[in-house]
Structures are given as C-alpha cells and as structure tokens.
Design a protein around this nucleic acid. Structure first.
Lengths: 330, 330
DNA sequence: ACCTCCAATGTAACGGATTACATGCTTGAT
DNA sequence: ATCAAGCATGTAATCCGTTACATTGGAGGT
C-alpha cells in the first residue's frame, strides 16, 4: 500500500503539499494539484485513516447501541440517525448489545479508546451513575429509553401521555375492565406507561385492579401467554392494552384461538406501530412514534454535543399519535 | 485524558514498561507491574487505541454489511458472527447499506482506509470485478448472497436444491399449477431458486408456464399484490411458492381476504423460516436455513483469511431444511 | 575478584498522516 | 532597483502507542 510519502516522491513535492491536495486546501497551484492527483491515481493511493485519525483525534464514526436488532421498531430510528449522520460526514455503525452489560461495555470501550467519536444508546443496562460518568467525558445521547437523573441528554416520546391516551380511547368505547400487558424490564417507558394507564382509569373513576396487569418480555409469545391467562378468568377483561405491537399480536392470536371476536369480544391496543400491525387481521390500534424524526433529532443532539454546543444535558420530548384501527373499533 | 507518558512518569518507569504491562508481556517484575497498575488507576488511564492501531496496522473491528436491518432473517446470522468474532477479540459493527451502492462504497472505504480489518457482505451491489479487486487486497467474505465468479469466499445454502425440495413437496401433495413469487433483484439466490422450481416441475413432467412466475420486492406488500394477481386469473394456481416468508405472509392475507382457505383452496410455501412464520394462521411451511451456523462459519472464514490461511477463495454450502406446517398440509 | 549471561528496563525509531512555522519566490509599489 | 507583502511550498514536530535494540544490574561460575 502506498503512503503519502510515496505519492509525494512520485509527484516531486512534499508530503505537506499532498496532504493539502487531499484536504482541499486552497493554497495549492493548479498544476501542482494536477501532478499530485496524477501520482495518487498512478499509485492507487488510499490515505490510511489511522494516521489522520491519530493526528486529528477523531474518527468520524458514530456507534448506535441497540439492545437487539430483531426489533423492527428501531429500523426507522436508525434511518433517521443515518440520514443526519451521513450528511454531516459521519459513518454510522450499529452494535447489538443483546441487553448484555458486558457487551455494552466492550463497545463503550471503543468510545473511551477514541475509536469512535460518539454513541447513541437505544437502551442501556448501565446505571445512571455510570452513564453520567462516561457522559462527562464522551459524547453520547439516550434515545427512546433513558435513565432519569443521568446527566446525559435524551429524546423520547411522553410515554405517560401515550398510555393515558390509549386507555382513554378504550374507556370511551365503553370498556371498564382493561387488561394491561406490561413489561418485566425496568425501563422507564414501562414505568411511565403503567402510570399513564392507572391515571386514565382513575380520571374515569374506574378502580384500579392489580390483577389486570400482567408482565411480558415484549415478544409475540409473552403476549400470547398473558392473553391466555386473561382469557381463563371468570371476569375476563374486555380490552387489552399491550406495551408492544408484538405482544398485542400474540394476544390477538390467543383471543382468536379461543374463538372470540376482535374487537367485539375483546379489543386490543398495541404500542409502536410496527409494520406488522397493519398486516394482521384485524389491523391493530396502536401508538405511533415519529421514529424517523426521533433518529434525526438524536443525531442532531449528538452533533451539537460533539461540537461542544451543549452546555446542559437536553431532554426532548416529541409527539406521539394514537392510530385507531379495527382492533378496537369497527 | 492521560497518555502513556503520564502513566510512565507517575509510575517512575519508561513508556516501554507501561506498554509491556498493558500488553501482558512476560518480562516485567511483579512490583514494577504493581506500580504501573496503580498509576493507571490513579490517572484513570485509557489507552488511546488510535496510536496502537496505527502502529499495529489493525483495528480489531469487523464490518457486517446488511442490505437492510429490517429483515429479521439476518438476526441469527449476526448472532453467529458476533459469537465467533467476540470470542476472538474482534468487535462486530453492523452497517445498513440500504442496497445502495454509494452507501456500500462509503463503508468499504473504511476497509480500504484500514479503519476496519475485514468485512462480511450479506449482499452487495458491487460487480464481481469490483469485488475481486477489493478482495485481492482486503479480507472479506460473502454470506448467503454471492457473486458467482468473484474471487471472494462465500458461504450459502444450496438455493437450487432448497427450491427444488419445496416445489417437489407441493407436487407430492397433488399440486400441478404452482405459482412462484420470485424476486426482481438480481441476486444469485433468486436465479437459483427459479432454476430449482423449473427443474422440479420438469422432473415431475409438468410443463413450465411463464405466467406462473411473478416478481416482488421480498416484502409483505409484494406478496399481497402478486397473490392478488394470481387470484384474479381464470385458471389460478392451487399453490404458491414465495421467495421469502414476508411475501408468503402477504400472499396469505390476499388469499384469506378473497375468502379462500389455506391450504385447501391454495397452499403456500415461504422461504427463510422467520419467527413470524409460526405466528400467522395457518403456520407457514417454509425453508429453514441454519442461520446461526452460517454466521459462525462466515466469521471463521474471515478470521482464516485475515491470518492468511486461505490461499484459494472457499465456497461453502450448508444444509437447509423444508419445514412442513399447516399452510400446505393439515 | 572477575567475567558471562540473562532478566528487567530504558531509549528511540516507527507507523502515516496533519499542520505550525520557515523559506523562497513572485509581484507590485516606490 | 529595492523592499514589503503574500502566495506556494517545504521542513519538521506532533498525535500515541509499540517494539527493536541498547543498557543496566545482579546472579552464578571459576
């Protein structure tokens, strides 16, 4: 592999001049530039970015940490991040942490070791103290999930309000016994959505019943199982609000297998508006998040932070939307 | 940020000794090692890997290029790649190329610029000449999709045999008019699967009918549309073989909307055995690939190539399996 | 006491680029 | 003709580790 030295020698100039040509510096005479470009082509020269990165102390690489790549919810967020990142000259790399703290730390070392310029967390197993500590020295943003109290910027929807709106919708349709399929994780979204659920009931004068909250792992099977439990009860709920579309779709399967009609016998609401939510029968009422925008804003925040334009951690909330489909209302 | 110099000064040793401690070199006296470790802790020192990478001319990073991250088919392959990669001290980064050649080239520059040590392509828009050219200088592997004739190793299933088996299964069930929902792309798998389909018909003495092959984009909508077209015909097929589970599921929706029964009125076979294929009603007959193993083998190959143990490009085929479910057979 | 040898450690070159500063040359003013 | 200014280019320091080679000091042999 040719180095900048080789190019300089071949073009009969100094390495500084070659570097100037490479970096589009202004003060290079046209014929010199030509000579250099010819030499570059002749030698099939590719700059070794390890050298440049060392000197500049930046890599123009951004890491996006995903708890899992199997959740299609992240797809559009990543697209948004990529859009803004690439437009600003950054390469976006994704990492699958598998919600494993060790894995997360391996990838975070890349940040600490300066191999990447910044990171966006879609969810993290780190404590708020650990996050604050790293966030003090390295650019990072939390996206969708976040740790309250960590001194790291985040962007998210208002999960409390979203859950409130979904439950309110069910109440308006006349439902009084509304089952919730919540999450076993300790994410803030889970906590806030449960709070929104409770508040909506309270505001409607419906007594809260602990037995109407079951927990799942956000996947199809969890939803299926939880719904089955609800269905076995004497006084089964007439509606189910699941914390993810996947769980909602699982629940729908259980309901249909039982020979019941959706939404007549039991209404179902999901969360996330994944593509599949329109592919099932009946189509699923759900909460939609502006994922693409969320991605764009997360990357914007990160860019600002890397430029040092963020003095204080920012907390941004974006709008959500209740999308009413046939699973609650004909 | 502390540098190795700072650590050396604080520990009262030379940078070489610090480096030896960092790299677990043998010839460091125990008490010296202790001193250095104390200094490292005191200064909260993290080696700046840009320096190391420049010197060693390696980054221990591997890139996996995905045409899209929304296809859950890749999930387990990535898990396999990660398993083997992490175990060997490599960080795995995923990139979403969006099947865009330009995007692909941006990420490939990272390889050319030595920012990553090797790459695994899940699919590429590059020509076989371009692949061969890059493959001559940089470690890379093709996984699942590949370009015939490119001098780059690959691992895949035998798509011809898999399609043959699926169609044979339908024929054995008595189907004579079998529609195929193929792909508009120019991937080798598409070509080979069409060939397998034709050969199975031929071997069964069924005349090939060009009108029974429609093309789609591998997504739900394509399958839905293609199936609709089939359903409108006077002599509609009695079975559909789709090149992806997503298309098969889309087709199932169209069939059900038409009021027809699966598999009685129309049988459906998919490809990939994604998780959703068991979540639909009826569950989908499909071709299963050992995705996890494929990922492991791909990474193994890459490791060998990076070590220079591969003289010739390798072509590896792994077993597939026809999984018979209710969408073809009660 | 002297020499050899080896383990432990230090010194400095090196990897490939960027860039502050130095230098030389051209140009235009006087 | 002389000089200042300014542009184009070159020189060399620098980024931060790694590592070949040099050096030191102590143990063991005679």
């Amino acid at each position: 592999m040719a180095t900048i030295q080789d190019v300089a020698k071949r073009a009969g100039v100094s390495v500084a001049t070659v570097s100037r040509v490479l970096n589009h510096s202004l003060s290079v005479r046209e014929d010199t530039r030509k000579k250099v470009q010819v030499a570059i082509k002749d030698l099939n020269y590719q700059p070794n970015l390890l050298g440049r990165n060392l000197r500049r102390s930046e890599t123009k690489m951004i890491l996006v940490l995903l708890p899992t790549i199997s959740n299609t919810f992240y797809v559009k967020i990543v697209k948004g991040i990529e859009e803004v990142g690439l437009r600003n000259g950054y390469n976006i790399m994704l990492c699958d942490t598998d919600s494993d703290k060790q894995r997360e730390e391996v990838y975070l070392d890349l940040l600490k070791n300066k191999l990447i310029d910044g990171a966006i967390f879609m969810a993290t197993e780190l404590s708020k103290e650990e996050l604050s500590e790293i966030g003090r020295y390295f650019p990072m943003i939390q996206c969708c999930e976040y740790k309250e109290g960590a001194e790291v910027s985040y962007i998210s929807i208002d999960n409390f309000a979203a859950a409130y709106k979904a439950v309110q919708h069910l109440i308006e349709l006349g439902h009084q016994r509304i089952g919730m399929i919540s999450g076993t994780n300790h994410c803030i979204s889970t906590f806030q959505r449960e709070a929104g659920y409770k508040k909506a009931l309270e505001d409607a004068g419906i007594a809260f019943d602990d037995a109407l909250i079951l927990k799942g792992e956000y996947g199809f099977k969890s939803g299926f199982r939880a719904a089955k439990q609800f269905l076995h009860r004497d006084k089964r709920p007439t509606a189910i609000f699941a914390m993810s579309d996947m769980m909602a779709i699982g629940a729908m399967k259980a309901i249909k297998e039982r020979g019941l009609q959706i939404p007549d016998d039991m209404a179902v609401v999901g969360f996330d508006n994944i593509r599949f939510s329109t592919m099932v029968e009946p189509q699923l009422t759900t909460i939609s998040q502006p994922q693409y925008d969320i991605g764009c804003i997360a990357m914007d925040l990160l860019l600002k932070q890397m430029k040092g334009e963020l003095k204080e951690p920012q907390h941004i909330f974006v709008e959500h939307e209740l999308i009413i489909r046939k699973s609650t209302f004909k």
